[in-house]
Design a protein around this nucleic acid. Sequence first.
DNA 1: CGTTTGTTTGACGTTACTCAAATCTCGTGG
DNA 2: CCACGAGATTTGAGTAACGTCAAACAAACG
Lengths: 256, 256
Amino acid sequence: MSDIPPQCQFCALHQHNGFFCSVLNDSEINRLSAHSRPTKLKRGEPIRATMIESWPVIGICEGIIGVRRVHPDGRGTIAAFFIDGDIVDLRGAPENMADGLSALAETSICHLSPGAFDEILSTNPDARMIAWKSLQAQSFRVIEHSAELAKKQAMEKIAWFIAEFRSLHRVDGTRGSIRFFRMPFRHVDLADYLGLQPETISRGFRSLRDRKVIRMLPDSMIEIVDPDALFTMAYGPEGAHRGGQDQASIRVLKAS
Amino acid sequence: MSDIPPQCQFCALHQHNGFFCSVLNDSEINRLSAHSRPTKLKRGEPIRATMIESWPVIGICEGIIGVRRVHPDGRGTIAAFFIDGDIVDLRGAPENMADGLSALAETSICHLSPGAFDEILSTNPDARMIAWKSLQAQSFRVIEHSAELAKKQAMEKIAWFIAEFRSLHRVDGTRGSIRFFRMPFRHVDLADYLGLQPETISRGFRSLRDRKVIRMLPDSMIEIVDPDALFTMAYGPEGAHRGGQDQASIRVLKAS
DNA sequence: CGTTTGTTTGACGTTACTCAAATCTCGTGG
DNA sequence: CCACGAGATTTGAGTAACGTCAAACAAACG
Protein backbone atom coordinates (compact mmCIF):
# COMPACT_ATOMS: atom_id res chain seq x y z
CA MET A 1 0.00 0.00 0.00
CA SER A 2 2.63 2.51 0.92
CA ASP A 3 4.85 3.63 -1.87
CA ILE A 4 8.31 3.62 -0.35
CA PRO A 5 11.49 2.66 -2.16
CA PRO A 6 12.51 -1.02 -1.98
CA GLN A 7 15.86 -0.44 -0.28
CA CYS A 8 14.06 1.29 2.60
CA GLN A 9 11.36 -1.32 2.95
CA PHE A 10 13.34 -3.58 5.26
CA CYS A 11 15.81 -1.06 6.64
CA ALA A 12 15.85 -0.81 10.43
CA LEU A 13 15.96 2.97 10.25
CA HIS A 14 12.48 2.85 8.76
CA GLN A 15 11.05 -0.25 10.39
CA HIS A 16 12.07 0.38 13.97
CA ASN A 17 9.79 2.71 15.83
CA GLY A 18 11.65 5.74 17.08
CA PHE A 19 14.30 5.60 14.39
CA PHE A 20 14.72 8.47 11.99
CA CYS A 21 13.00 7.21 8.85
CA SER A 22 10.05 5.76 10.73
CA VAL A 23 8.48 9.19 11.18
CA LEU A 24 8.87 10.33 7.58
CA ASN A 25 5.87 10.42 5.30
CA ASP A 26 6.02 8.79 1.88
CA SER A 27 6.97 11.94 0.07
CA GLU A 28 9.79 12.67 2.52
CA ILE A 29 11.21 9.18 2.45
CA ASN A 30 11.15 9.14 -1.31
CA ARG A 31 12.93 12.42 -1.54
CA LEU A 32 15.52 11.35 1.01
CA SER A 33 16.19 7.96 -0.49
CA ALA A 34 16.54 9.39 -3.98
CA HIS A 35 19.73 11.06 -2.85
CA SER A 36 20.96 8.39 -0.48
CA ARG A 37 23.52 5.61 -0.70
CA PRO A 38 22.85 2.49 1.35
CA THR A 39 26.14 0.71 1.97
CA LYS A 40 27.16 -2.57 3.55
CA LEU A 41 30.46 -2.83 5.39
CA LYS A 42 32.37 -5.89 6.45
CA ARG A 43 34.14 -6.01 9.77
CA GLY A 44 37.18 -3.80 9.66
CA GLU A 45 36.14 -2.03 6.49
CA PRO A 46 36.55 1.75 6.66
CA ILE A 47 34.05 4.31 5.44
CA ARG A 48 35.84 5.91 2.52
CA ALA A 49 36.91 9.49 3.06
CA THR A 50 35.61 10.42 -0.37
CA MET A 51 32.18 9.07 0.55
CA ILE A 52 32.16 11.16 3.70
CA GLU A 53 33.03 14.27 1.76
CA SER A 54 30.06 13.89 -0.56
CA TRP A 55 27.62 12.34 1.93
CA PRO A 56 28.66 13.48 5.37
CA VAL A 57 25.36 12.59 7.02
CA ILE A 58 25.13 8.92 7.87
CA GLY A 59 22.40 6.80 9.40
CA ILE A 60 23.42 3.54 11.04
CA CYS A 61 20.90 0.86 10.09
CA GLU A 62 22.51 -2.07 11.81
CA GLY A 63 25.85 -2.94 13.32
CA ILE A 64 28.62 -0.84 14.83
CA ILE A 65 30.77 1.95 13.46
CA GLY A 66 33.87 2.77 15.48
CA VAL A 67 35.82 6.01 15.62
CA ARG A 68 39.44 4.97 15.54
CA ARG A 69 42.29 7.36 16.24
CA VAL A 70 45.81 6.28 15.47
CA HIS A 71 48.48 7.86 17.59
CA PRO A 72 51.82 8.69 16.04
CA ASP A 73 53.51 5.78 17.79
CA GLY A 74 51.25 3.39 15.92
CA ARG A 75 48.98 2.56 18.83
CA GLY A 76 45.32 2.93 18.03
CA THR A 77 42.33 3.95 20.09
CA ILE A 78 38.64 3.54 19.54
CA ALA A 79 37.29 6.73 20.99
CA ALA A 80 33.60 6.04 20.45
CA PHE A 81 31.20 3.99 18.45
CA PHE A 82 27.86 4.48 16.78
CA ILE A 83 25.06 1.92 16.81
CA ASP A 84 21.76 1.16 15.12
CA GLY A 85 19.55 4.19 14.90
CA ASP A 86 22.29 6.76 15.30
CA ILE A 87 22.27 9.69 12.93
CA VAL A 88 25.82 10.93 12.50
CA ASP A 89 26.46 14.36 11.03
CA LEU A 90 30.12 14.69 10.07
CA ARG A 91 29.91 18.19 8.65
CA GLY A 92 32.36 20.18 10.71
CA ALA A 93 34.04 17.13 12.18
CA PRO A 94 37.81 17.35 12.65
CA GLU A 95 39.42 15.81 9.54
CA ASN A 96 41.30 13.20 11.49
CA MET A 97 37.99 11.91 12.76
CA ALA A 98 36.48 11.18 9.37
CA ASP A 99 39.59 9.17 8.54
CA GLY A 100 39.06 6.77 11.38
CA LEU A 101 35.51 5.56 10.83
CA SER A 102 35.26 1.84 10.26
CA ALA A 103 32.92 -1.05 10.93
CA LEU A 104 33.63 -3.06 14.07
CA ALA A 105 31.15 -5.71 12.99
CA GLU A 106 29.05 -6.44 9.92
CA THR A 107 27.30 -3.13 9.43
CA SER A 108 24.84 -1.45 7.09
CA ILE A 109 24.78 2.30 6.90
CA CYS A 110 22.93 4.79 4.77
CA HIS A 111 24.64 7.87 3.45
CA LEU A 112 21.98 10.57 3.41
CA SER A 113 21.89 13.54 1.18
CA PRO A 114 22.75 16.55 3.37
CA GLY A 115 20.34 18.75 1.48
CA ALA A 116 17.37 16.45 1.82
CA PHE A 117 18.31 15.80 5.43
CA ASP A 118 18.38 19.47 6.34
CA GLU A 119 15.13 20.06 4.56
CA ILE A 120 13.42 17.30 6.52
CA LEU A 121 14.83 18.66 9.77
CA SER A 122 13.33 22.03 9.05
CA THR A 123 9.87 20.76 8.14
CA ASN A 124 9.32 17.63 10.23
CA PRO A 125 9.41 18.26 13.99
CA ASP A 126 9.36 14.55 14.84
CA ALA A 127 12.37 13.88 12.66
CA ARG A 128 14.11 16.89 14.14
CA MET A 129 13.45 15.59 17.63
CA ILE A 130 14.79 12.15 16.78
CA ALA A 131 17.96 13.50 15.20
CA TRP A 132 18.50 15.79 18.16
CA LYS A 133 17.98 13.03 20.69
CA SER A 134 20.29 10.76 18.74
CA LEU A 135 23.07 13.30 18.80
CA GLN A 136 22.42 13.87 22.50
CA ALA A 137 22.57 10.15 23.21
CA GLN A 138 25.85 9.86 21.33
CA SER A 139 27.24 12.65 23.41
CA PHE A 140 26.10 11.11 26.70
CA ARG A 141 27.50 7.76 25.67
CA VAL A 142 30.92 9.20 24.98
CA ILE A 143 30.83 11.04 28.29
CA GLU A 144 30.07 7.77 30.01
CA HIS A 145 32.94 6.21 28.13
CA SER A 146 35.30 8.95 29.23
CA ALA A 147 34.33 8.42 32.82
CA GLU A 148 35.14 4.74 32.52
CA LEU A 149 38.46 5.30 30.82
CA ALA A 150 39.59 7.41 33.71
CA LYS A 151 38.95 4.57 36.13
CA LYS A 152 42.13 2.94 37.21
CA GLN A 153 41.29 -0.74 37.36
CA ALA A 154 41.30 -2.82 34.20
CA MET A 155 38.84 -5.32 35.64
CA GLU A 156 36.36 -2.57 36.40
CA LYS A 157 36.48 -1.39 32.83
CA ILE A 158 35.98 -4.85 31.43
CA ALA A 159 33.10 -5.63 33.76
CA TRP A 160 31.51 -2.30 32.89
CA PHE A 161 31.79 -2.97 29.20
CA ILE A 162 30.19 -6.38 29.49
CA ALA A 163 27.38 -4.98 31.60
CA GLU A 164 26.66 -2.12 29.22
CA PHE A 165 27.00 -4.09 26.05
CA ARG A 166 24.70 -6.76 27.35
CA SER A 167 21.80 -4.33 27.23
CA LEU A 168 22.60 -3.40 23.66
CA HIS A 169 22.74 -6.80 22.02
CA ARG A 170 20.28 -9.13 23.59
CA VAL A 171 19.54 -12.42 21.91
CA ASP A 172 16.78 -14.10 23.82
CA GLY A 173 13.70 -12.18 24.84
CA THR A 174 14.19 -12.78 28.52
CA ARG A 175 12.82 -9.90 30.52
CA GLY A 176 14.46 -8.66 33.66
CA SER A 177 17.70 -10.58 33.61
CA ILE A 178 19.42 -11.02 30.29
CA ARG A 179 21.83 -13.88 30.70
CA PHE A 180 22.99 -14.60 27.16
CA PHE A 181 24.23 -12.19 24.55
CA ARG A 182 26.70 -11.96 21.73
CA MET A 183 29.80 -9.81 21.80
CA PRO A 184 31.01 -9.36 18.25
CA PHE A 185 33.97 -7.22 19.25
CA ARG A 186 37.45 -8.53 18.68
CA HIS A 187 39.67 -8.35 21.74
CA VAL A 188 42.01 -6.00 19.94
CA ASP A 189 39.18 -3.55 19.35
CA LEU A 190 37.93 -3.91 22.87
CA ALA A 191 41.43 -3.20 24.13
CA ASP A 192 41.59 -0.07 22.00
CA TYR A 193 38.17 0.99 23.23
CA LEU A 194 39.01 0.58 26.91
CA GLY A 195 42.54 1.93 26.68
CA LEU A 196 44.11 -1.40 27.57
CA GLN A 197 46.32 -3.97 25.87
CA PRO A 198 44.85 -7.07 24.23
CA GLU A 199 46.80 -9.17 26.72
CA THR A 200 45.11 -7.40 29.59
CA ILE A 201 41.68 -8.02 28.07
CA SER A 202 42.50 -11.66 27.73
CA ARG A 203 43.67 -11.94 31.32
CA GLY A 204 40.57 -10.08 32.47
CA PHE A 205 38.18 -12.43 30.72
CA ARG A 206 40.08 -15.42 32.03
CA SER A 207 39.83 -14.07 35.54
CA LEU A 208 36.07 -13.52 35.17
CA ARG A 209 35.73 -17.04 33.84
CA ASP A 210 37.85 -18.58 36.59
CA ARG A 211 35.83 -16.74 39.21
CA LYS A 212 32.68 -18.12 37.58
CA VAL A 213 31.24 -14.67 36.87
CA ILE A 214 30.76 -15.31 33.17
CA ARG A 215 30.96 -18.26 30.82
CA MET A 216 32.28 -18.00 27.30
CA LEU A 217 30.36 -20.00 24.74
CA PRO A 218 31.02 -20.57 21.05
CA ASP A 219 30.28 -17.87 18.48
CA SER A 220 31.27 -15.00 20.80
CA MET A 221 28.32 -15.75 23.07
CA ILE A 222 28.63 -14.77 26.69
CA GLU A 223 26.61 -16.11 29.59
CA ILE A 224 26.43 -14.03 32.74
CA VAL A 225 26.57 -16.58 35.54
CA ASP A 226 26.90 -14.27 38.51
CA PRO A 227 25.25 -10.93 37.68
CA ASP A 228 25.70 -9.50 41.17
CA ALA A 229 29.42 -10.01 41.08
CA LEU A 230 29.61 -8.50 37.62
CA PHE A 231 27.58 -5.41 38.43
CA THR A 232 29.46 -4.87 41.64
CA MET A 233 32.70 -4.86 39.71
CA ALA A 234 31.23 -2.60 37.04
CA TYR A 235 29.33 -0.05 39.13
CA GLY A 236 30.58 -0.63 42.67
CA PRO A 237 28.70 -2.05 45.66
CA GLU A 238 25.94 0.57 45.65
CA GLY A 239 25.55 0.59 41.90
CA ALA A 240 25.04 -3.16 41.63
CA HIS A 241 21.28 -2.78 41.29
CA ARG A 242 21.71 -0.62 38.20
CA GLY A 243 22.50 -3.59 36.05
CA GLY A 244 19.58 -5.57 37.32
CA GLN A 245 17.07 -4.06 35.00
CA ASP A 246 17.69 -2.51 31.66
CA GLN A 247 20.41 0.01 31.57
CA ALA A 248 18.94 3.39 30.80
CA SER A 249 21.96 5.53 30.16
CA ILE A 250 22.97 4.00 26.88
CA ARG A 251 19.50 3.69 25.44
CA VAL A 252 18.23 7.19 25.99
CA LEU A 253 17.24 7.57 22.39
CA LYS A 254 15.22 4.44 22.03
CA ALA A 255 13.39 4.87 25.31
CA SER A 256 11.85 8.15 24.33
CA MET B 1 17.87 51.38 20.29
CA SER B 2 17.05 47.73 20.35
CA ASP B 3 14.65 46.68 23.01
CA ILE B 4 16.30 43.68 24.59
CA PRO B 5 16.19 42.84 28.28
CA PRO B 6 18.98 44.31 30.44
CA GLN B 7 20.35 40.98 31.61
CA CYS B 8 20.95 39.95 28.00
CA GLN B 9 22.54 43.21 26.95
CA PHE B 10 26.05 42.28 28.01
CA CYS B 11 25.75 38.51 27.93
CA ALA B 12 28.29 36.75 25.74
CA LEU B 13 25.61 34.46 24.34
CA HIS B 14 24.05 37.52 22.76
CA GLN B 15 27.09 39.68 22.10
CA HIS B 16 29.41 37.10 20.58
CA ASN B 17 28.78 36.46 16.92
CA GLY B 18 27.90 32.86 16.28
CA PHE B 19 26.52 32.27 19.76
CA PHE B 20 22.92 31.27 20.21
CA CYS B 21 21.23 34.50 21.25
CA SER B 22 23.10 36.59 18.69
CA VAL B 23 20.82 35.39 15.89
CA LEU B 24 17.54 35.94 17.71
CA ASN B 25 15.34 38.87 16.82
CA ASP B 26 14.02 41.18 19.52
CA SER B 27 10.75 39.36 19.91
CA GLU B 28 12.47 36.01 20.25
CA ILE B 29 15.03 37.18 22.75
CA ASN B 30 12.34 38.82 24.84
CA ARG B 31 10.24 35.71 24.87
CA LEU B 32 13.24 33.54 25.71
CA SER B 33 14.58 35.76 28.45
CA ALA B 34 11.17 36.12 30.06
CA HIS B 35 11.38 32.48 31.04
CA SER B 36 15.11 32.26 31.68
CA ARG B 37 17.24 32.30 34.80
CA PRO B 38 20.71 33.80 34.47
CA THR B 39 22.92 32.39 37.22
CA LYS B 40 26.43 33.04 38.42
CA LEU B 41 28.47 30.18 39.87
CA LYS B 42 31.63 30.32 41.92
CA ARG B 43 34.39 27.80 41.36
CA GLY B 44 33.31 24.44 42.68
CA GLU B 45 29.67 25.41 42.99
CA PRO B 46 27.30 22.77 41.61
CA ILE B 47 24.27 23.40 39.44
CA ARG B 48 21.40 22.45 41.67
CA ALA B 49 19.51 19.32 40.65
CA THR B 50 16.20 21.07 41.26
CA MET B 51 17.21 23.83 38.86
CA ILE B 52 18.06 21.29 36.21
CA GLU B 53 14.70 19.62 36.61
CA SER B 54 12.80 22.81 35.95
CA TRP B 55 15.25 24.37 33.45
CA PRO B 56 17.10 21.54 31.80
CA VAL B 57 18.33 23.62 28.88
CA ILE B 58 21.40 25.65 29.75
CA GLY B 59 23.49 28.14 27.86
CA ILE B 60 27.06 28.73 29.01
CA CYS B 61 27.76 32.45 28.86
CA GLU B 62 31.25 32.44 30.26
CA GLY B 63 33.46 30.05 32.18
CA ILE B 64 33.60 26.29 32.44
CA ILE B 65 31.08 23.72 33.59
CA GLY B 66 32.48 20.28 34.33
CA VAL B 67 30.69 16.95 34.30
CA ARG B 68 31.92 15.16 37.39
CA ARG B 69 31.26 11.50 38.05
CA VAL B 70 31.97 10.12 41.48
CA HIS B 71 32.81 6.46 41.60
CA PRO B 72 31.65 4.36 44.52
CA ASP B 73 35.16 4.23 45.99
CA GLY B 74 35.12 7.99 46.31
CA ARG B 75 37.41 8.74 43.41
CA GLY B 76 36.02 11.35 41.07
CA THR B 77 36.33 11.91 37.37
CA ILE B 78 35.62 14.90 35.19
CA ALA B 79 34.29 13.28 32.06
CA ALA B 80 33.77 16.40 30.01
CA PHE B 81 33.35 20.13 30.25
CA PHE B 82 31.27 22.77 28.58
CA ILE B 83 32.56 26.20 27.61
CA ASP B 84 31.32 29.60 26.51
CA GLY B 85 28.72 29.36 23.82
CA ASP B 86 27.72 25.78 24.48
CA ILE B 87 24.04 25.01 24.57
CA VAL B 88 23.46 22.03 26.84
CA ASP B 89 20.19 20.14 26.70
CA LEU B 90 19.88 17.87 29.71
CA ARG B 91 16.45 16.46 28.90
CA GLY B 92 17.00 12.77 28.65
CA ALA B 93 20.39 12.86 30.32
CA PRO B 94 21.19 9.99 32.68
CA GLU B 95 20.26 11.11 36.20
CA ASN B 96 23.76 10.60 37.55
CA MET B 97 24.98 13.11 35.01
CA ALA B 98 22.80 15.97 36.12
CA ASP B 99 24.10 15.44 39.65
CA GLY B 100 27.67 16.06 38.68
CA LEU B 101 27.52 19.43 36.96
CA SER B 102 29.58 22.09 38.63
CA ALA B 103 31.65 25.13 37.79
CA LEU B 104 35.38 24.56 37.38
CA ALA B 105 36.00 28.28 37.31
CA GLU B 106 33.94 31.44 37.84
CA THR B 107 31.05 30.82 35.48
CA SER B 108 27.83 32.43 34.31
CA ILE B 109 25.15 30.30 32.83
CA CYS B 110 21.63 30.93 31.67
CA HIS B 111 18.86 28.44 32.35
CA LEU B 112 16.56 28.64 29.34
CA SER B 113 12.91 27.82 29.28
CA PRO B 114 12.59 24.51 27.41
CA GLY B 115 9.34 25.60 25.83
CA ALA B 116 10.67 28.88 24.47
CA PHE B 117 13.85 27.13 23.39
CA ASP B 118 12.01 24.47 21.40
CA GLU B 119 9.80 27.08 19.82
CA ILE B 120 12.79 29.08 18.66
CA LEU B 121 14.43 25.97 17.27
CA SER B 122 11.39 25.24 15.19
CA THR B 123 11.02 28.73 13.78
CA ASN B 124 14.54 30.11 13.51
CA PRO B 125 16.83 28.11 11.21
CA ASP B 126 19.95 30.03 12.22
CA ALA B 127 19.34 29.31 15.89
CA ARG B 128 18.65 25.68 15.06
CA MET B 129 21.91 25.46 13.16
CA ILE B 130 23.87 26.99 16.02
CA ALA B 131 22.36 24.69 18.61
CA TRP B 132 23.00 21.70 16.38
CA LYS B 133 26.60 22.68 15.75
CA SER B 134 27.15 23.29 19.43
CA LEU B 135 25.92 19.84 20.33
CA GLN B 136 28.08 18.40 17.57
CA ALA B 137 31.12 20.26 18.83
CA GLN B 138 30.52 19.00 22.36
CA SER B 139 30.36 15.49 21.01
CA PHE B 140 33.57 15.84 19.02
CA ARG B 141 35.33 17.34 21.99
CA VAL B 142 34.41 14.44 24.23
CA ILE B 143 35.53 11.99 21.56
CA GLU B 144 38.86 13.78 21.42
CA HIS B 145 39.03 13.58 25.18
CA SER B 146 38.34 9.85 25.13
CA ALA B 147 41.13 9.31 22.65
CA GLU B 148 43.53 11.12 24.92
CA LEU B 149 42.48 9.25 28.03
CA ALA B 150 43.36 5.99 26.35
CA LYS B 151 46.96 7.12 25.91
CA LYS B 152 49.31 5.42 28.26
CA GLN B 153 51.76 8.16 29.07
CA ALA B 154 50.89 10.76 31.66
CA MET B 155 53.23 13.33 30.13
CA GLU B 156 51.52 13.02 26.76
CA LYS B 157 48.18 13.74 28.34
CA ILE B 158 49.45 16.77 30.21
CA ALA B 159 51.20 18.20 27.18
CA TRP B 160 48.07 17.65 25.11
CA PHE B 161 45.91 19.41 27.63
CA ILE B 162 48.20 22.43 27.76
CA ALA B 163 48.34 22.59 23.98
CA GLU B 164 44.57 22.37 23.58
CA PHE B 165 43.68 24.67 26.41
CA ARG B 166 46.08 27.29 25.16
CA SER B 167 43.90 27.81 22.12
CA LEU B 168 40.81 28.24 24.29
CA HIS B 169 41.98 30.87 26.72
CA ARG B 170 44.33 33.27 25.08
CA VAL B 171 45.23 36.42 26.89
CA ASP B 172 47.34 38.53 24.60
CA GLY B 173 46.32 39.07 20.99
CA THR B 174 49.47 37.53 19.56
CA ARG B 175 48.75 35.90 16.24
CA GLY B 176 50.38 32.67 15.14
CA SER B 177 52.12 31.66 18.31
CA ILE B 178 50.29 32.18 21.56
CA ARG B 179 52.90 32.09 24.29
CA PHE B 180 51.02 33.23 27.36
CA PHE B 181 47.70 32.05 28.70
CA ARG B 182 45.89 31.43 31.94
CA MET B 183 44.96 28.00 33.19
CA PRO B 184 42.29 28.42 35.87
CA PHE B 185 42.01 24.69 36.54
CA ARG B 186 43.00 23.36 39.90
CA HIS B 187 45.44 20.47 39.73
CA VAL B 188 42.90 18.21 41.40
CA ASP B 189 40.38 18.90 38.66
CA LEU B 190 42.97 18.49 35.95
CA ALA B 191 43.94 15.16 37.46
CA ASP B 192 40.31 14.06 37.44
CA TYR B 193 39.94 15.21 33.86
CA LEU B 194 42.99 13.35 32.59
CA GLY B 195 42.47 10.25 34.69
CA LEU B 196 45.59 10.84 36.76
CA GLN B 197 46.47 11.63 40.36
CA PRO B 198 47.17 15.19 41.50
CA GLU B 199 50.68 14.08 42.42
CA THR B 200 51.30 12.93 38.87
CA ILE B 201 50.08 16.26 37.51
CA SER B 202 52.42 18.05 39.83
CA ARG B 203 55.37 15.91 38.80
CA GLY B 204 54.46 16.38 35.14
CA PHE B 205 54.44 20.15 35.39
CA ARG B 206 57.71 20.12 37.29
CA SER B 207 59.27 17.99 34.59
CA LEU B 208 58.06 20.35 31.86
CA ARG B 209 59.44 23.26 33.82
CA ASP B 210 62.79 21.57 34.47
CA ARG B 211 63.11 20.76 30.79
CA LYS B 212 62.37 24.41 30.00
CA VAL B 213 59.31 23.59 27.93
CA ILE B 214 57.02 25.86 29.90
CA ARG B 215 57.37 28.50 32.60
CA MET B 216 54.88 28.92 35.39
CA LEU B 217 54.09 32.49 36.28
CA PRO B 218 51.94 33.95 39.05
CA ASP B 219 48.15 33.93 38.80
CA SER B 220 48.00 30.56 37.01
CA MET B 221 49.68 32.02 33.95
CA ILE B 222 51.67 29.70 31.74
CA GLU B 223 54.35 30.66 29.24
CA ILE B 224 55.18 28.21 26.49
CA VAL B 225 58.92 28.47 26.10
CA ASP B 226 59.55 25.59 23.71
CA PRO B 227 56.42 25.05 21.59
CA ASP B 228 58.02 22.41 19.37
CA ALA B 229 58.89 20.22 22.31
CA LEU B 230 55.40 20.66 23.76
CA PHE B 231 53.56 19.82 20.54
CA THR B 232 55.78 16.86 19.88
CA MET B 233 54.88 15.50 23.28
CA ALA B 234 51.22 16.26 22.75
CA TYR B 235 50.67 15.14 19.17
CA GLY B 236 53.80 13.13 18.34
CA PRO B 237 56.65 13.97 15.95
CA GLU B 238 54.44 14.26 12.86
CA GLY B 239 51.67 16.09 14.63
CA ALA B 240 53.93 18.79 15.99
CA HIS B 241 52.85 21.28 13.35
CA ARG B 242 49.23 20.99 14.45
CA GLY B 243 49.82 23.16 17.45
CA GLY B 244 51.67 25.77 15.45
CA GLN B 245 48.60 27.57 14.32
CA ASP B 246 45.25 27.67 15.96
CA GLN B 247 43.85 24.35 16.94
CA ALA B 248 40.76 23.63 14.89
CA SER B 249 39.32 20.57 16.50
CA ILE B 250 38.13 22.16 19.68
CA ARG B 251 36.74 25.30 18.09
CA VAL B 252 34.56 23.78 15.45
CA LEU B 253 31.55 25.70 16.57
CA LYS B 254 33.04 29.13 16.62
CA ALA B 255 34.79 28.76 13.30
CA SER B 256 31.58 28.26 11.39
C1' DC C 1 45.33 35.45 61.78
C1' DG C 2 44.04 30.90 62.06
C1' DT C 3 41.85 27.06 59.71
C1' DT C 4 41.00 24.60 55.76
C1' DT C 5 42.07 23.10 51.36
C1' DG C 6 45.20 22.37 47.79
C1' DT C 7 50.03 21.40 46.19
C1' DT C 8 54.58 19.47 46.37
C1' DT C 9 58.06 16.07 47.52
C1' DG C 10 59.79 11.55 48.76
C1' DA C 11 59.72 6.45 49.42
C1' DC C 12 57.44 2.42 48.24
C1' DG C 13 54.18 -0.92 46.07
C1' DT C 14 51.32 -2.67 42.43
C1' DT C 15 49.17 -2.76 38.22
C1' DA C 16 49.21 -3.13 33.66
C1' DC C 17 52.55 -2.65 29.75
C1' DT C 18 56.31 -4.88 27.12
C1' DC C 19 58.45 -8.53 24.84
C1' DA C 20 58.42 -13.14 23.19
C1' DA C 21 56.65 -17.44 21.87
C1' DA C 22 52.94 -20.93 21.38
C1' DT C 23 48.30 -21.70 19.97
C1' DC C 24 44.11 -20.74 17.95
C1' DT C 25 40.58 -18.58 14.42
C1' DC C 26 38.92 -16.95 10.53
C1' DG C 27 38.96 -15.55 5.97
C1' DT C 28 40.89 -16.78 1.53
C1' DG C 29 41.91 -19.24 -2.39
C1' DG C 30 42.73 -23.59 -4.32
C1' DC D 1 35.09 -28.36 1.00
C1' DC D 2 39.48 -28.36 2.75
C1' DA D 3 44.08 -26.50 3.50
C1' DC D 4 46.72 -22.72 4.19
C1' DG D 5 48.39 -18.53 6.20
C1' DA D 6 47.83 -14.06 8.22
C1' DG D 7 46.15 -12.19 12.01
C1' DA D 8 44.18 -12.64 16.60
C1' DT D 9 44.39 -14.67 21.18
C1' DT D 10 46.58 -16.70 25.05
C1' DT D 11 50.24 -17.44 28.37
C1' DG D 12 54.38 -16.37 30.88
C1' DA D 13 58.22 -13.53 32.86
C1' DG D 14 60.22 -9.16 33.71
C1' DT D 15 59.88 -4.19 34.26
C1' DA D 16 58.55 0.66 34.10
C1' DA D 17 55.23 3.89 35.10
C1' DC D 18 51.90 5.48 37.84
C1' DG D 19 49.25 5.05 42.12
C1' DT D 20 49.39 5.06 47.16
C1' DC D 21 50.64 6.69 51.54
C1' DA D 22 52.51 10.18 54.48
C1' DA D 23 54.24 14.52 55.77
C1' DA D 24 55.71 19.22 54.89
C1' DC D 25 54.54 23.30 52.67
C1' DA D 26 51.72 26.90 50.35
C1' DA D 27 47.57 29.27 49.22
C1' DA D 28 42.88 30.61 49.84
C1' DC D 29 39.16 31.79 52.73
C1' DG D 30 36.58 33.63 56.28
